[in-house]
Write a protein that binds this DNA or RNA. Sequence first.
DNA 1: TTTATTTTGGAAATCGATTTCCTAAAACCA
DNA 2: TGGTTTTAGGAAATCGATTTCCAAAATAAA
Lengths: 350, 350
Amino acid sequence: MEKRAKNKRVTIHDIARSIGVAPSTVSKALNDLPSASAKIKALVDAKARELNYKHNSNAANLRRGSSRTVGVIVPRVNVALFSDAISGIEECCFENDHRLIICQSDESYEKEVKAVDTLLKQNVDCILISLSRETKSTHHLREITNHYVHLVQFDRVDPSFQSHMVVNDNIRASYNAVKHLVEQGYRRIALLGGPEYLPVYKERKDGYLQAIKEAELEIPYYYLTDNAVKTDLAMSRVTELLKAKNRPDAFFAVSDYAALGALKAARSLGLNIPDDVGIVGFSNEIFTEVTTPALSSVMQWGKEIGIAAVDIYFSHILRSKSPAKKQDFITRTIDSTLIIRESSTRIPAH
Amino acid sequence: MEKRAKNKRVTIHDIARSIGVAPSTVSKALNDLPSASAKIKALVDAKARELNYKHNSNAANLRRGSSRTVGVIVPRVNVALFSDAISGIEECCFENDHRLIICQSDESYEKEVKAVDTLLKQNVDCILISLSRETKSTHHLREITNHYVHLVQFDRVDPSFQSHMVVNDNIRASYNAVKHLVEQGYRRIALLGGPEYLPVYKERKDGYLQAIKEAELEIPYYYLTDNAVKTDLAMSRVTELLKAKNRPDAFFAVSDYAALGALKAARSLGLNIPDDVGIVGFSNEIFTEVTTPALSSVMQWGKEIGIAAVDIYFSHILRSKSPAKKQDFITRTIDSTLIIRESSTRIPAH
DNA sequence: TTTATTTTGGAAATCGATTTCCTAAAACCA
DNA sequence: TGGTTTTAGGAAATCGATTTCCAAAATAAA
């Protein structure tokens, strides 16, 4: 008869009272602990359903000191790599009965710091992060570990900050991509690169250089650009290069957006792709298969990267009781795959 | 000298002890309440920074009974409309000092229900939801309101469930799109539609029909398809239609993926777009401007939709103290814009 | 049957911030 | 200066679930 006040949450006390046991017993039953009998568990479950009980994570987290929640911070959720990673992370969290909080840094250092702060306040157990393009300091990463929260960096990592990591084999992938261009008969291969303070771009450039060196190609210095990650910039840069006397016959772009810029530039100059100009991009963004011609690109297995990152937490960190001995940080590398499409498939000339 | 145990969180008690005031005073200072003097506030702020104090949301939320957190559930984060909406929602939350938790339903009803459950357990103050394609029941929406959590449906809404809503003007947008095709001289316009139990698809079909009727066009029944939202299905369906004797000269697709399928089908049959076949899609996905030819599409102003949704919470619900009188639910409509590109721009024949 | 052991359930402390209520001191006012 | 009103800060209760410790009951062992 006694009704709870309206707008008041049903608690384990309500359940306890209504079936005549102690709240602690209800808690044990709901958590399926051995010290509650099957009989009680059934009773409690039924009553919980009847009263429309909803577990209060805040209370539980407060008491438990951990939140069974993973936080992930990515530059953008709508970039193929990251949305794939998130989808993998989400599945793993789900399987392991953990919550997932997703934050976007929007490629801004300031927002990334705020995101870290939010997640720490939320008491997450682990943070997975892929750094924003602006991020040059690791102060906020130190914050994370200072608060005894586990940290895994993935894809856009800062190797100078010791932590678990999951990375791409950027060097090898780029090497393979450029080697492919060489095999297709391209000889004057230009690089559309990104800022080198970001390891991913530095590595992709290294892979490019390695392949160039191996093939003993003569490349003029101005074939290397380091600020052409976006479509517009790449487009104007490529237009410039293609108009020059000694024009490149292929472009290796560290991003698909840059590759798209190259494609547009070449087409608007009336050049044929892949006959006059070959193009290979990076990331296998969704649009690469719908351009004309379709763009070759390096696929990064984003989902696998995400799974690997969160798996370091579930399989490795959670499992080992030991208080995380220093310097036994794991680094996992996920191999990328070159997806060859029309933009780099030249019909042999002879 | 007395050190806190390692791995133990710094609390307001630590701050209080170290500057010799009561915890309640510290709380007031940190929350900038009037009953703490400026002197104390400065002291507390300094000490908090010094001790590297981090506010514990779980404790605060538990006590406060609200979490200053908004939850959003979308089918997919990497669909243009939703990632745009999320970005708008995020900005608003940030401005209003609220946290945001993002969940994906992955177009699955089961996962959508789980997401609702998670958010309710997290004690969010408001849930913004765009329904999955599978969702036919509103049981979980009832759950939300039963727990006194505010609800705003957006874009993919179920009008049979009373709540605040933000929607697209699907009918008008579709009507305009088809009218545009008519003005470009297309006469045999086919519809690539989606399942009608989803209002968005139903409405887009209605808009299409309205324009067809107004232009007094004769359209055979088999020009209307209702299961062609995805590229593959649309492609085979369009191939079929274009091979038939009485082939359509234009397609209005309720999704850009379907439009892409139409584009591929037409091209592989050697038909010219837009001369032989016109195409207009829906959503203005990122790839629509990079296809050849570029696809005309209806842009939905996703960011504005997201902002409108969360603004109903911040401006309307939070502001009004009144306990949400029944039946004064708000519905906002955000006008879409037709982006005309090459795929539907036919050079006048004569 | 008695003792030892295992099960089962309860009482009470606890997590950390907020908030209500209250008192002492300070400021104000004739 | 005596009385009143503000103001500043503290004590203690509280949010809801978990967990430790303990006792009673049930079971097993002797």
